[in-house]
Design a protein around this nucleic acid. Structure first.
Lengths: 295, 295
DNA sequence: ATGGCTGAGCTGGTTCAACCAGTATGGCTG
DNA sequence: CAGCCATACTGGTTGAACCAGCTCAGCCAT
Protein backbone atom coordinates (compact mmCIF):
# COMPACT_ATOMS: atom_id res chain seq x y z
CA UNK A 1 0.00 0.00 0.00
CA UNK A 2 1.13 3.49 -0.66
CA UNK A 3 0.69 5.35 2.58
CA UNK A 4 3.12 4.05 5.17
CA UNK A 5 1.95 3.75 8.72
CA UNK A 6 3.73 5.60 11.44
CA UNK A 7 5.77 3.01 13.22
CA UNK A 8 4.39 4.12 16.55
CA UNK A 9 0.79 3.48 15.49
CA UNK A 10 0.43 0.05 14.01
CA UNK A 11 -2.96 -1.36 13.18
CA UNK A 12 -4.03 -2.96 16.36
CA UNK A 13 -4.34 -6.71 16.11
CA UNK A 14 -5.30 -6.49 12.49
CA UNK A 15 -3.47 -9.44 11.11
CA UNK A 16 -4.50 -11.52 14.08
CA UNK A 17 -8.02 -10.48 13.32
CA UNK A 18 -7.76 -11.40 9.69
CA UNK A 19 -6.50 -14.79 10.54
CA UNK A 20 -9.29 -15.16 13.04
CA UNK A 21 -11.91 -13.98 10.60
CA UNK A 22 -11.64 -17.08 8.55
CA UNK A 23 -10.71 -19.49 11.28
CA UNK A 24 -12.80 -21.43 13.78
CA UNK A 25 -14.55 -19.39 16.38
CA UNK A 26 -12.42 -17.99 19.14
CA UNK A 27 -13.50 -18.20 22.72
CA UNK A 28 -12.94 -15.55 25.31
CA UNK A 29 -14.68 -12.57 26.82
CA UNK A 30 -12.82 -9.54 28.02
CA UNK A 31 -14.48 -9.00 31.36
CA UNK A 32 -17.58 -7.03 32.21
CA UNK A 33 -15.98 -3.64 31.66
CA UNK A 34 -18.76 -2.45 29.38
CA UNK A 35 -21.85 -3.50 31.23
CA UNK A 36 -24.97 -1.60 30.35
CA UNK A 37 -25.34 1.74 31.98
CA UNK A 38 -28.51 2.05 34.04
CA UNK A 39 -30.32 3.87 31.28
CA UNK A 40 -33.99 4.72 31.30
CA UNK A 41 -34.91 1.66 29.25
CA UNK A 42 -38.14 -0.08 30.09
CA UNK A 43 -38.16 -3.68 31.15
CA UNK A 44 -36.52 -4.65 27.90
CA UNK A 45 -33.67 -6.68 29.24
CA UNK A 46 -31.06 -5.71 26.69
CA UNK A 47 -29.08 -7.80 24.26
CA UNK A 48 -26.86 -9.59 26.70
CA UNK A 49 -28.65 -12.91 26.49
CA UNK A 50 -26.44 -15.67 25.16
CA UNK A 51 -29.26 -16.75 22.83
CA UNK A 52 -28.66 -20.46 22.79
CA UNK A 53 -31.39 -20.82 20.17
CA UNK A 54 -32.04 -24.46 20.81
CA UNK A 55 -35.12 -23.70 18.79
CA UNK A 56 -35.50 -26.30 16.04
CA UNK A 57 -37.34 -24.02 13.64
CA UNK A 58 -34.79 -21.29 14.20
CA UNK A 59 -31.90 -23.67 13.67
CA UNK A 60 -33.38 -24.81 10.37
CA UNK A 61 -33.99 -21.20 9.40
CA UNK A 62 -30.40 -20.32 10.06
CA UNK A 63 -29.13 -23.34 8.19
CA UNK A 64 -31.23 -22.64 5.12
CA UNK A 65 -30.32 -18.97 5.31
CA UNK A 66 -26.66 -19.85 5.40
CA UNK A 67 -27.03 -22.16 2.42
CA UNK A 68 -28.71 -19.40 0.47
CA UNK A 69 -26.20 -16.74 1.46
CA UNK A 70 -23.18 -18.79 0.51
CA UNK A 71 -24.77 -19.83 -2.76
CA UNK A 72 -25.34 -23.52 -2.05
CA UNK A 73 -28.93 -22.74 -2.87
CA UNK A 74 -28.87 -20.51 -5.92
CA UNK A 75 -31.37 -17.81 -6.80
CA UNK A 76 -34.29 -19.13 -8.78
CA UNK A 77 -33.74 -22.66 -7.57
CA UNK A 78 -36.69 -24.46 -6.03
CA UNK A 79 -36.50 -25.85 -2.54
CA UNK A 80 -37.65 -29.41 -1.90
CA UNK A 81 -41.26 -29.71 -0.84
CA UNK A 82 -42.14 -29.04 2.76
CA UNK A 83 -42.78 -32.72 3.37
CA UNK A 84 -39.37 -33.65 2.02
CA UNK A 85 -37.58 -30.86 3.87
CA UNK A 86 -39.30 -31.82 7.08
CA UNK A 87 -38.08 -35.39 6.83
CA UNK A 88 -34.62 -34.18 5.77
CA UNK A 89 -34.35 -32.18 8.97
CA UNK A 90 -35.98 -35.01 10.91
CA UNK A 91 -38.84 -32.87 12.06
CA UNK A 92 -42.48 -32.33 11.19
CA UNK A 93 -44.08 -30.07 8.66
CA UNK A 94 -45.38 -27.50 11.14
CA UNK A 95 -42.01 -26.82 12.67
CA UNK A 96 -40.38 -26.71 9.28
CA UNK A 97 -42.98 -24.29 8.01
CA UNK A 98 -42.06 -21.87 10.78
CA UNK A 99 -38.54 -21.83 9.42
CA UNK A 100 -39.83 -21.19 5.92
CA UNK A 101 -41.98 -18.34 7.20
CA UNK A 102 -38.87 -16.70 8.57
CA UNK A 103 -37.00 -17.16 5.32
CA UNK A 104 -39.93 -15.60 3.55
CA UNK A 105 -40.00 -12.66 5.92
CA UNK A 106 -36.26 -12.22 5.41
CA UNK A 107 -36.93 -11.97 1.65
CA UNK A 108 -34.70 -14.94 1.01
CA UNK A 109 -37.40 -17.08 -0.57
CA UNK A 110 -40.78 -16.58 -2.13
CA UNK A 111 -43.54 -19.03 -1.39
CA UNK A 112 -46.42 -19.60 -3.76
CA UNK A 113 -49.33 -21.88 -3.08
CA UNK A 114 -49.20 -24.83 -5.44
CA UNK A 115 -45.82 -23.90 -6.86
CA UNK A 116 -43.42 -24.46 -4.04
CA UNK A 117 -40.70 -22.35 -2.49
CA UNK A 118 -38.12 -20.62 -4.67
CA UNK A 119 -34.91 -18.95 -3.62
CA UNK A 120 -34.87 -15.20 -4.18
CA UNK A 121 -32.01 -13.21 -5.63
CA UNK A 122 -31.08 -11.63 -2.33
CA UNK A 123 -28.37 -9.49 -3.85
CA UNK A 124 -31.07 -7.71 -5.81
CA UNK A 125 -33.98 -7.75 -3.43
CA UNK A 126 -32.31 -7.93 -0.02
CA UNK A 127 -31.80 -5.24 2.56
CA UNK A 128 -29.05 -4.43 5.00
CA UNK A 129 -30.62 -6.85 7.43
CA UNK A 130 -28.71 -9.50 5.56
CA UNK A 131 -25.35 -7.95 6.32
CA UNK A 132 -24.80 -9.67 9.63
CA UNK A 133 -26.02 -13.11 8.57
CA UNK A 134 -24.02 -12.82 5.39
CA UNK A 135 -20.78 -12.17 7.19
CA UNK A 136 -21.66 -14.87 9.67
CA UNK A 137 -22.40 -17.33 6.87
CA UNK A 138 -18.86 -16.81 5.64
CA UNK A 139 -19.01 -17.77 2.01
CA UNK A 140 -15.89 -17.87 -0.11
CA UNK A 141 -13.09 -15.58 0.98
CA UNK A 142 -13.28 -13.79 -2.31
CA UNK A 143 -17.01 -13.24 -1.95
CA UNK A 144 -16.78 -11.90 1.58
CA UNK A 145 -14.02 -9.53 0.67
CA UNK A 146 -15.93 -8.24 -2.31
CA UNK A 147 -18.95 -7.55 -0.14
CA UNK A 148 -16.82 -5.89 2.52
CA UNK A 149 -15.14 -3.63 0.01
CA UNK A 150 -18.58 -2.68 -1.12
CA UNK A 151 -19.93 -2.06 2.34
CA UNK A 152 -17.13 0.03 3.75
CA UNK A 153 -17.87 3.26 1.87
CA UNK A 154 -21.54 2.83 2.68
CA UNK A 155 -20.64 2.47 6.32
CA UNK A 156 -18.63 5.66 6.11
CA UNK A 157 -21.57 7.49 4.57
CA UNK A 158 -23.85 6.27 7.33
CA UNK A 159 -21.39 7.30 9.99
CA UNK A 160 -20.95 10.72 8.47
CA UNK A 161 -24.68 11.17 8.32
CA UNK A 162 -25.06 10.02 11.91
CA UNK A 163 -22.30 12.38 12.96
CA UNK A 164 -23.89 15.26 11.12
CA UNK A 165 -27.25 14.73 12.76
CA UNK A 166 -25.60 14.24 16.13
CA UNK A 167 -23.90 17.62 15.85
CA UNK A 168 -27.12 19.28 14.85
CA UNK A 169 -29.24 17.79 17.59
CA UNK A 170 -26.97 17.10 20.52
CA UNK A 171 -28.11 18.41 23.87
CA UNK A 172 -26.14 18.73 27.05
CA UNK A 173 -26.91 15.25 28.35
CA UNK A 174 -25.95 13.66 25.04
CA UNK A 175 -22.58 15.35 25.14
CA UNK A 176 -22.03 14.33 28.74
CA UNK A 177 -22.87 10.75 27.97
CA UNK A 178 -20.61 10.63 24.95
CA UNK A 179 -17.79 12.34 26.80
CA UNK A 180 -18.00 9.79 29.56
CA UNK A 181 -17.83 6.89 27.16
CA UNK A 182 -15.03 8.55 25.26
CA UNK A 183 -12.90 8.93 28.38
CA UNK A 184 -13.42 5.30 29.32
CA UNK A 185 -12.70 4.22 25.78
CA UNK A 186 -9.49 6.15 25.46
CA UNK A 187 -8.33 4.67 28.72
CA UNK A 188 -9.25 1.23 27.45
CA UNK A 189 -7.35 1.95 24.27
CA UNK A 190 -4.14 1.88 26.25
CA UNK A 191 -4.75 -1.74 27.14
CA UNK A 192 -4.70 -2.73 23.46
CA UNK A 193 -7.38 -5.28 24.32
CA UNK A 194 -9.27 -5.55 21.04
CA UNK A 195 -12.41 -7.12 22.43
CA UNK A 196 -12.70 -4.60 25.23
CA UNK A 197 -12.15 -1.65 22.94
CA UNK A 198 -14.54 -3.14 20.43
CA UNK A 199 -17.32 -3.33 22.97
CA UNK A 200 -16.64 0.16 24.16
CA UNK A 201 -16.64 1.48 20.62
CA UNK A 202 -19.96 -0.21 20.03
CA UNK A 203 -21.39 1.67 22.96
CA UNK A 204 -19.82 4.86 21.69
CA UNK A 205 -21.40 4.40 18.29
CA UNK A 206 -24.76 3.70 19.86
CA UNK A 207 -24.51 6.88 21.88
CA UNK A 208 -23.50 8.85 18.80
CA UNK A 209 -26.52 7.52 16.94
CA UNK A 210 -28.83 8.23 19.84
CA UNK A 211 -27.53 11.76 19.84
CA UNK A 212 -28.99 12.22 16.39
CA UNK A 213 -32.44 11.78 17.92
CA UNK A 214 -33.57 10.34 14.65
CA UNK A 215 -35.43 7.13 14.10
CA UNK A 216 -34.24 7.09 10.51
CA UNK A 217 -30.59 7.09 11.52
CA UNK A 218 -31.14 4.34 14.06
CA UNK A 219 -32.87 2.20 11.48
CA UNK A 220 -30.15 2.71 8.94
CA UNK A 221 -27.38 2.17 11.43
CA UNK A 222 -28.83 -0.84 13.23
CA UNK A 223 -27.85 -3.43 10.63
CA UNK A 224 -24.30 -2.12 10.73
CA UNK A 225 -24.23 -2.20 14.51
CA UNK A 226 -25.62 -5.72 14.43
CA UNK A 227 -22.93 -6.85 12.06
CA UNK A 228 -20.31 -5.13 14.18
CA UNK A 229 -21.57 -6.78 17.34
CA UNK A 230 -21.83 -10.22 15.80
CA UNK A 231 -18.35 -10.06 14.38
CA UNK A 232 -17.10 -8.74 17.69
CA UNK A 233 -18.56 -11.71 19.48
CA UNK A 234 -17.11 -14.15 17.03
CA UNK A 235 -13.70 -12.56 16.58
CA UNK A 236 -12.92 -10.53 19.69
CA UNK A 237 -9.46 -9.75 18.41
CA UNK A 238 -10.50 -8.44 15.05
CA UNK A 239 -11.05 -4.75 15.51
CA UNK A 240 -9.09 -2.50 13.30
CA UNK A 241 -8.14 0.44 15.42
CA UNK A 242 -5.72 2.82 13.96
CA UNK A 243 -3.35 4.84 16.12
CA UNK A 244 -5.36 8.00 15.58
CA UNK A 245 -8.41 6.41 17.15
CA UNK A 246 -8.34 8.50 20.33
CA UNK A 247 -7.77 11.61 18.26
CA UNK A 248 -10.81 10.79 16.18
CA UNK A 249 -12.95 10.32 19.26
CA UNK A 250 -11.75 13.55 20.86
CA UNK A 251 -12.11 15.56 17.68
CA UNK A 252 -15.65 14.33 17.25
CA UNK A 253 -16.63 15.12 20.79
CA UNK A 254 -15.11 18.55 20.68
CA UNK A 255 -16.74 19.40 17.38
CA UNK A 256 -19.98 18.11 18.81
CA UNK A 257 -19.70 20.33 21.84
CA UNK A 258 -18.84 23.32 19.65
CA UNK A 259 -21.61 22.53 17.19
CA UNK A 260 -19.04 22.51 14.41
CA UNK A 261 -20.60 20.16 11.91
CA UNK A 262 -17.89 20.29 9.28
CA UNK A 263 -15.10 19.63 11.72
CA UNK A 264 -16.88 16.55 13.03
CA UNK A 265 -17.49 15.26 9.52
CA UNK A 266 -13.89 15.90 8.61
CA UNK A 267 -12.60 13.98 11.61
CA UNK A 268 -14.84 11.07 10.76
CA UNK A 269 -13.91 11.10 7.10
CA UNK A 270 -10.21 11.31 7.79
CA UNK A 271 -10.20 8.51 10.30
CA UNK A 272 -12.34 6.04 8.40
CA UNK A 273 -10.63 6.66 5.11
CA UNK A 274 -7.40 5.76 6.81
CA UNK A 275 -8.73 2.67 8.49
CA UNK A 276 -10.65 1.46 5.48
CA UNK A 277 -7.72 1.99 3.13
CA UNK A 278 -5.54 -0.14 5.31
CA UNK A 279 -8.25 -2.70 5.75
CA UNK A 280 -8.96 -3.04 2.05
CA UNK A 281 -5.27 -3.19 1.36
CA UNK A 282 -4.86 -6.01 3.77
CA UNK A 283 -7.87 -7.81 2.39
CA UNK A 284 -6.44 -7.59 -1.07
CA UNK A 285 -3.08 -8.81 0.06
CA UNK A 286 -4.86 -11.85 1.40
CA UNK A 287 -6.31 -12.56 -2.03
CA UNK A 288 -3.14 -11.81 -3.95
CA UNK A 289 -0.23 -12.35 -1.60
CA UNK A 290 2.24 -11.62 -4.39
CA UNK A 291 1.03 -8.02 -4.47
CA UNK A 292 1.84 -7.57 -0.81
CA UNK A 293 3.94 -4.45 -0.31
CA UNK A 294 7.10 -4.11 1.71
CA UNK A 295 6.66 -2.42 5.08
CA UNK B 1 -42.36 29.02 3.82
CA UNK B 2 -39.65 31.41 2.84
CA UNK B 3 -38.73 30.56 -0.72
CA UNK B 4 -41.57 31.31 -3.11
CA UNK B 5 -42.24 28.93 -5.94
CA UNK B 6 -41.95 30.10 -9.49
CA UNK B 7 -45.49 30.44 -10.71
CA UNK B 8 -44.71 28.41 -13.79
CA UNK B 9 -43.55 25.36 -11.81
CA UNK B 10 -46.11 24.41 -9.22
CA UNK B 11 -45.74 21.24 -7.24
CA UNK B 12 -47.48 18.67 -9.30
CA UNK B 13 -50.56 17.25 -7.61
CA UNK B 14 -49.07 17.77 -4.20
CA UNK B 15 -52.10 18.93 -2.31
CA UNK B 16 -54.20 16.30 -4.04
CA UNK B 17 -51.63 13.81 -2.90
CA UNK B 18 -51.68 15.04 0.66
CA UNK B 19 -55.39 14.75 0.80
CA UNK B 20 -55.16 11.29 -0.67
CA UNK B 21 -52.45 10.23 1.71
CA UNK B 22 -54.80 10.17 4.63
CA UNK B 23 -57.95 9.20 2.77
CA UNK B 24 -59.30 5.83 1.68
CA UNK B 25 -57.37 4.07 -1.01
CA UNK B 26 -57.70 5.45 -4.49
CA UNK B 27 -58.29 3.16 -7.40
CA UNK B 28 -56.81 3.61 -10.83
CA UNK B 29 -53.87 2.45 -12.88
CA UNK B 30 -52.28 4.61 -15.51
CA UNK B 31 -51.89 2.11 -18.28
CA UNK B 32 -49.07 -0.25 -19.08
CA UNK B 33 -46.65 2.41 -20.18
CA UNK B 34 -43.89 1.17 -17.91
CA UNK B 35 -43.92 -2.54 -18.53
CA UNK B 36 -40.74 -4.31 -17.67
CA UNK B 37 -38.01 -4.14 -20.23
CA UNK B 38 -36.85 -7.55 -21.45
CA UNK B 39 -33.82 -7.52 -19.22
CA UNK B 40 -31.52 -10.45 -18.71
CA UNK B 41 -33.24 -11.56 -15.52
CA UNK B 42 -33.59 -15.26 -14.90
CA UNK B 43 -36.99 -16.83 -14.51
CA UNK B 44 -37.76 -14.51 -11.64
CA UNK B 45 -41.09 -13.16 -12.76
CA UNK B 46 -40.77 -9.64 -11.42
CA UNK B 47 -42.81 -7.72 -8.90
CA UNK B 48 -45.95 -7.21 -10.91
CA UNK B 49 -48.06 -9.75 -9.08
CA UNK B 50 -51.08 -8.19 -7.41
CA UNK B 51 -50.31 -10.17 -4.24
CA UNK B 52 -53.82 -10.83 -2.98
CA UNK B 53 -52.36 -12.36 0.20
CA UNK B 54 -55.43 -14.37 1.09
CA UNK B 55 -53.00 -16.07 3.43
CA UNK B 56 -54.47 -16.25 6.93
CA UNK B 57 -51.14 -16.25 8.73
CA UNK B 58 -49.94 -13.34 6.65
CA UNK B 59 -53.12 -11.41 7.30
CA UNK B 60 -52.69 -11.87 11.01
CA UNK B 61 -49.05 -10.89 10.73
CA UNK B 62 -49.97 -7.69 8.96
CA UNK B 63 -52.69 -6.88 11.44
CA UNK B 64 -50.45 -7.37 14.45
CA UNK B 65 -47.68 -5.48 12.73
CA UNK B 66 -50.01 -2.58 12.09
CA UNK B 67 -51.17 -2.58 15.70
CA UNK B 68 -47.58 -2.43 16.86
CA UNK B 69 -46.55 0.25 14.40
CA UNK B 70 -49.41 2.57 15.27
CA UNK B 71 -48.85 2.02 18.97
CA UNK B 72 -51.99 0.09 19.80
CA UNK B 73 -49.60 -2.51 21.13
CA UNK B 74 -46.95 -0.62 23.04
CA UNK B 75 -43.32 -1.61 23.45
CA UNK B 76 -42.77 -3.87 26.42
CA UNK B 77 -46.37 -4.98 26.49
CA UNK B 78 -47.08 -8.70 26.49
CA UNK B 79 -49.22 -10.25 23.79
CA UNK B 80 -51.98 -12.65 24.77
CA UNK B 81 -50.97 -16.29 24.77
CA UNK B 82 -50.86 -18.15 21.48
CA UNK B 83 -53.96 -20.11 22.41
CA UNK B 84 -55.89 -16.95 23.16
CA UNK B 85 -54.67 -15.15 20.07
CA UNK B 86 -55.54 -18.12 17.92
CA UNK B 87 -59.11 -18.13 19.15
CA UNK B 88 -59.28 -14.33 18.85
CA UNK B 89 -58.41 -14.61 15.18
CA UNK B 90 -60.64 -17.65 14.86
CA UNK B 91 -57.82 -19.87 13.71
CA UNK B 92 -55.60 -22.56 15.15
CA UNK B 93 -52.36 -22.32 16.99
CA UNK B 94 -50.09 -23.46 14.16
CA UNK B 95 -51.34 -20.87 11.73
CA UNK B 96 -51.13 -18.19 14.35
CA UNK B 97 -47.63 -19.22 15.25
CA UNK B 98 -46.55 -18.65 11.67
CA UNK B 99 -47.70 -15.07 12.03
CA UNK B 100 -45.75 -14.72 15.26
CA UNK B 101 -42.64 -16.15 13.60
CA UNK B 102 -42.85 -13.39 11.02
CA UNK B 103 -43.28 -10.74 13.67
CA UNK B 104 -40.24 -12.13 15.41
CA UNK B 105 -38.21 -12.10 12.21
CA UNK B 106 -39.30 -8.51 11.61
CA UNK B 107 -37.89 -7.64 15.06
CA UNK B 108 -41.28 -6.44 16.19
CA UNK B 109 -41.63 -8.91 19.04
CA UNK B 110 -39.39 -11.12 21.08
CA UNK B 111 -40.53 -14.61 21.97
CA UNK B 112 -39.26 -16.43 25.00
CA UNK B 113 -40.17 -19.97 25.89
CA UNK B 114 -42.24 -19.99 29.04
CA UNK B 115 -42.54 -16.23 29.22
CA UNK B 116 -44.72 -15.30 26.29
CA UNK B 117 -44.39 -12.80 23.49
CA UNK B 118 -43.44 -9.20 24.21
CA UNK B 119 -43.60 -6.23 21.88
CA UNK B 120 -40.22 -4.77 21.00
CA UNK B 121 -39.32 -1.10 20.88
CA UNK B 122 -39.13 -0.99 17.11
CA UNK B 123 -38.04 2.64 17.04
CA UNK B 124 -34.86 1.57 18.79
CA UNK B 125 -34.26 -1.86 17.36
CA UNK B 126 -35.95 -1.70 13.97
CA UNK B 127 -34.42 -1.33 10.55
CA UNK B 128 -35.46 0.44 7.38
CA UNK B 129 -37.52 -2.61 6.47
CA UNK B 130 -40.18 -1.09 8.65
CA UNK B 131 -40.42 2.07 6.60
CA UNK B 132 -42.95 0.80 4.11
CA UNK B 133 -45.19 -0.99 6.61
CA UNK B 134 -45.01 2.01 8.89
CA UNK B 135 -46.25 4.38 6.25
CA UNK B 136 -48.82 1.82 5.23
CA UNK B 137 -49.98 1.43 8.80
CA UNK B 138 -50.76 5.12 8.87
CA UNK B 139 -50.63 6.01 12.51
CA UNK B 140 -51.54 9.45 13.71
CA UNK B 141 -50.99 12.25 11.21
CA UNK B 142 -48.57 13.86 13.58
CA UNK B 143 -46.59 10.67 13.94
CA UNK B 144 -46.36 9.99 10.22
CA UNK B 145 -45.25 13.53 9.50
CA UNK B 146 -42.60 13.35 12.18
CA UNK B 147 -41.24 10.16 10.67
CA UNK B 148 -41.32 11.58 7.17
CA UNK B 149 -39.45 14.70 8.21
CA UNK B 150 -36.91 12.39 9.71
CA UNK B 151 -36.65 10.16 6.68
CA UNK B 152 -36.34 12.77 3.97
CA UNK B 153 -32.76 13.86 4.67
CA UNK B 154 -31.78 10.21 4.97
CA UNK B 155 -33.34 9.54 1.61
CA UNK B 156 -31.36 12.41 0.16
CA UNK B 157 -28.15 10.99 1.58
CA UNK B 158 -28.91 7.61 0.10
CA UNK B 159 -29.69 9.12 -3.28
CA UNK B 160 -26.53 11.17 -3.25
CA UNK B 161 -24.51 8.12 -2.39
CA UNK B 162 -26.21 6.10 -5.10
CA UNK B 163 -25.58 8.89 -7.57
CA UNK B 164 -21.95 9.10 -6.59
CA UNK B 165 -21.38 5.40 -7.05
CA UNK B 166 -23.31 5.45 -10.32
CA UNK B 167 -21.04 8.14 -11.71
CA UNK B 168 -17.97 6.24 -10.63
CA UNK B 169 -19.02 2.91 -12.03
CA UNK B 170 -21.29 3.59 -14.98
CA UNK B 171 -20.45 1.79 -18.18
CA UNK B 172 -21.78 2.45 -21.65
CA UNK B 173 -24.81 0.15 -21.35
CA UNK B 174 -25.81 1.69 -18.02
CA UNK B 175 -25.81 5.13 -19.55
CA UNK B 176 -27.80 3.97 -22.54
CA UNK B 177 -30.37 2.37 -20.34
CA UNK B 178 -30.71 5.41 -18.13
CA UNK B 179 -30.86 7.74 -21.09
CA UNK B 180 -33.68 5.70 -22.60
CA UNK B 181 -35.70 5.79 -19.43
CA UNK B 182 -34.97 9.47 -19.00
CA UNK B 183 -36.31 10.31 -22.45
CA UNK B 184 -39.47 8.34 -21.83
CA UNK B 185 -39.87 9.90 -18.44
CA UNK B 186 -39.47 13.45 -19.62
CA UNK B 187 -42.04 12.82 -22.29
CA UNK B 188 -44.34 11.36 -19.67
CA UNK B 189 -43.76 14.41 -17.51
CA UNK B 190 -45.65 16.48 -20.05
CA UNK B 191 -48.77 14.43 -19.36
CA UNK B 192 -48.77 15.50 -15.71
CA UNK B 193 -50.04 12.03 -14.92
CA UNK B 194 -48.72 11.49 -11.41
CA UNK B 195 -49.07 7.72 -11.37
CA UNK B 196 -47.40 7.28 -14.73
CA UNK B 197 -44.53 9.55 -13.86
CA UNK B 198 -44.23 7.89 -10.49
CA UNK B 199 -43.81 4.48 -12.04
CA UNK B 200 -41.34 5.76 -14.53
CA UNK B 201 -39.34 7.49 -11.84
CA UNK B 202 -39.26 4.26 -9.88
CA UNK B 203 -37.72 2.54 -12.87
CA UNK B 204 -35.29 5.42 -13.29
CA UNK B 205 -34.20 5.13 -9.67
CA UNK B 206 -33.75 1.39 -10.02
CA UNK B 207 -31.59 1.91 -13.06
CA UNK B 208 -29.55 4.55 -11.25
CA UNK B 209 -28.99 2.19 -8.36
CA UNK B 210 -28.08 -0.68 -10.68
CA UNK B 211 -25.55 1.60 -12.28
CA UNK B 212 -23.71 1.76 -8.99
CA UNK B 213 -22.98 -1.96 -9.36
CA UNK B 214 -22.97 -2.23 -5.62
CA UNK B 215 -24.85 -4.70 -3.49
CA UNK B 216 -24.53 -2.36 -0.55
CA UNK B 217 -26.32 0.45 -2.34
CA UNK B 218 -29.10 -1.83 -3.48
CA UNK B 219 -29.60 -3.10 0.05
CA UNK B 220 -29.72 0.37 1.48
CA UNK B 221 -31.95 1.71 -1.24
CA UNK B 222 -34.40 -1.19 -1.40
CA UNK B 223 -36.44 -0.21 1.66
CA UNK B 224 -36.84 3.27 0.22
CA UNK B 225 -37.85 1.91 -3.15
CA UNK B 226 -40.31 -0.41 -1.45
CA UNK B 227 -41.87 2.45 0.44
CA UNK B 228 -41.98 4.50 -2.74
CA UNK B 229 -43.66 1.70 -4.68
CA UNK B 230 -46.18 0.93 -1.97
CA UNK B 231 -47.16 4.55 -1.60
CA UNK B 232 -47.34 4.85 -5.35
CA UNK B 233 -49.75 1.94 -5.52
CA UNK B 234 -51.93 3.34 -2.79
CA UNK B 235 -51.86 6.98 -3.81
CA UNK B 236 -51.16 7.18 -7.53
CA UNK B 237 -51.66 10.92 -7.52
CA UNK B 238 -49.28 11.68 -4.70
CA UNK B 239 -45.95 12.20 -6.33
CA UNK B 240 -44.28 15.45 -5.61
CA UNK B 241 -42.62 16.46 -8.81
CA UNK B 242 -41.22 19.88 -8.96
CA UNK B 243 -41.02 21.81 -12.22
CA UNK B 244 -37.27 21.30 -12.41
CA UNK B 245 -37.72 17.54 -12.51
CA UNK B 246 -36.68 17.11 -16.15
CA UNK B 247 -33.72 19.38 -15.57
CA UNK B 248 -32.64 17.22 -12.65
CA UNK B 249 -32.87 14.09 -14.75
CA UNK B 250 -30.96 15.59 -17.66
CA UNK B 251 -28.29 17.08 -15.45
CA UNK B 252 -27.74 13.76 -13.75
CA UNK B 253 -27.50 11.85 -17.00
CA UNK B 254 -25.12 14.35 -18.52
CA UNK B 255 -22.90 14.41 -15.48
CA UNK B 256 -22.97 10.63 -15.50
CA UNK B 257 -21.88 10.51 -19.12
CA UNK B 258 -19.12 13.02 -18.43
CA UNK B 259 -18.05 11.26 -15.28
CA UNK B 260 -18.51 14.50 -13.37
CA UNK B 261 -19.26 13.29 -9.88
CA UNK B 262 -19.67 16.65 -8.23
CA UNK B 263 -22.04 17.97 -10.84
CA UNK B 264 -24.28 14.93 -10.47
CA UNK B 265 -24.30 15.28 -6.71
CA UNK B 266 -25.06 18.95 -6.98
CA UNK B 267 -28.00 18.37 -9.29
CA UNK B 268 -29.39 15.76 -6.91
CA UNK B 269 -28.87 17.92 -3.86
CA UNK B 270 -30.43 20.98 -5.43
CA UNK B 271 -33.48 19.14 -6.67
CA UNK B 272 -34.26 17.17 -3.55
CA UNK B 273 -33.64 20.07 -1.23
CA UNK B 274 -36.22 21.98 -3.20
CA UNK B 275 -38.75 19.19 -3.26
CA UNK B 276 -38.25 18.24 0.34
CA UNK B 277 -38.45 21.81 1.57
CA UNK B 278 -41.79 22.24 -0.13
CA UNK B 279 -42.96 18.89 1.08
CA UNK B 280 -42.06 19.52 4.69
CA UNK B 281 -43.59 22.96 4.50
CA UNK B 282 -46.81 21.52 3.26
CA UNK B 283 -46.76 18.80 5.87
CA UNK B 284 -46.32 21.39 8.59
CA UNK B 285 -49.08 23.52 7.20
CA UNK B 286 -51.32 20.50 7.54
CA UNK B 287 -50.49 20.25 11.22
CA UNK B 288 -50.70 23.98 11.89
CA UNK B 289 -53.00 25.47 9.26
CA UNK B 290 -52.68 28.92 10.82
CA UNK B 291 -49.02 28.98 9.82
CA UNK B 292 -49.89 28.39 6.19
CA UNK B 293 -48.22 30.99 3.99
CA UNK B 294 -49.82 33.06 1.29
CA UNK B 295 -49.20 31.88 -2.28
C1' DA C 1 -54.56 -33.53 -36.17
C1' DT C 2 -55.77 -30.19 -33.07
C1' DG C 3 -58.03 -27.94 -29.42
C1' DG C 4 -60.00 -28.10 -25.01
C1' DC C 5 -61.44 -30.71 -20.92
C1' DT C 6 -60.44 -33.53 -16.91
C1' DG C 7 -58.53 -35.78 -13.25
C1' DA C 8 -54.32 -37.47 -10.93
C1' DG C 9 -50.75 -35.93 -8.33
C1' DC C 10 -47.75 -32.50 -7.18
C1' DT C 11 -47.36 -28.10 -4.26
C1' DG C 12 -48.40 -25.15 -0.06
C1' DG C 13 -52.46 -23.76 3.48
C1' DT C 14 -55.23 -25.00 7.51
C1' DT C 15 -56.94 -27.56 11.17
C1' DC C 16 -56.94 -30.54 15.22
C1' DA C 17 -55.45 -32.80 19.37
C1' DA C 18 -52.17 -34.24 21.93
C1' DC C 19 -47.87 -33.87 24.42
C1' DC C 20 -42.99 -31.81 25.65
C1' DA C 21 -40.47 -28.16 27.90
C1' DG C 22 -39.25 -23.83 30.07
C1' DT C 23 -40.88 -20.26 33.80
C1' DA C 24 -43.24 -18.18 37.46
C1' DT C 25 -45.78 -18.54 41.72
C1' DG C 26 -47.99 -19.68 45.81
C1' DG C 27 -48.62 -22.76 49.23
C1' DC C 28 -46.70 -26.40 51.81
C1' DT C 29 -42.98 -28.33 54.57
C1' DG C 30 -38.86 -28.48 57.37
C1' DC D 1 -38.88 -17.91 58.10
C1' DA D 2 -36.34 -20.25 54.23
C1' DG D 3 -36.58 -23.31 50.80
C1' DC D 4 -38.75 -26.66 48.09
C1' DC D 5 -42.13 -28.27 44.87
C1' DA D 6 -46.78 -28.95 42.79
C1' DT D 7 -49.20 -26.49 39.59
C1' DA D 8 -50.62 -23.64 36.19
C1' DC D 9 -49.30 -20.73 33.09
C1' DT D 10 -46.13 -19.81 28.77
C1' DG D 11 -44.18 -21.31 24.11
C1' DG D 12 -42.13 -25.71 21.39
C1' DT D 13 -42.98 -30.06 18.90
C1' DT D 14 -45.41 -33.67 16.94
C1' DG D 15 -48.33 -36.36 13.45
C1' DA D 16 -52.18 -36.91 10.85
C1' DA D 17 -55.79 -35.47 8.24
C1' DC D 18 -57.88 -32.55 5.09
C1' DC D 19 -58.42 -28.12 2.02
C1' DA D 20 -56.84 -25.48 -1.97
C1' DG D 21 -53.90 -23.79 -5.93
C1' DC D 22 -51.21 -25.42 -9.85
C1' DT D 23 -49.32 -28.50 -13.62
C1' DC D 24 -49.58 -31.75 -16.88
C1' DA D 25 -50.49 -36.08 -19.05
C1' DG D 26 -53.88 -38.06 -21.43
C1' DC D 27 -58.42 -38.42 -23.04
C1' DC D 28 -62.24 -36.78 -25.71
C1' DA D 29 -64.59 -33.95 -29.10
C1' DT D 30 -64.26 -31.17 -32.94
Amino acid sequence: MNAPLTAASPLLTLDVGLRALFAPRLAGDAGAGWAHAPGGRSKVSGMDDPTPSSNIADTIFRDLRRQILVGELAAGQRLPGERDLASTYKTNRNTLREAVRKLEQARLVTVRHGQGVTVSDFKKTGTMDLLSPLLEAGGSLHEVIHILEDILPAREQVLEFATRMAVRRADRSDIERLTGITDLLITAFETKDGALIGKGFHRWLEALIDTGHSTAIRWIANPFLDAYRDLLEKYPALWVLEGSFPTYLRETINALADGDEERAILASRKYYQRVDREFVGLLKSVIQPEAQPQP
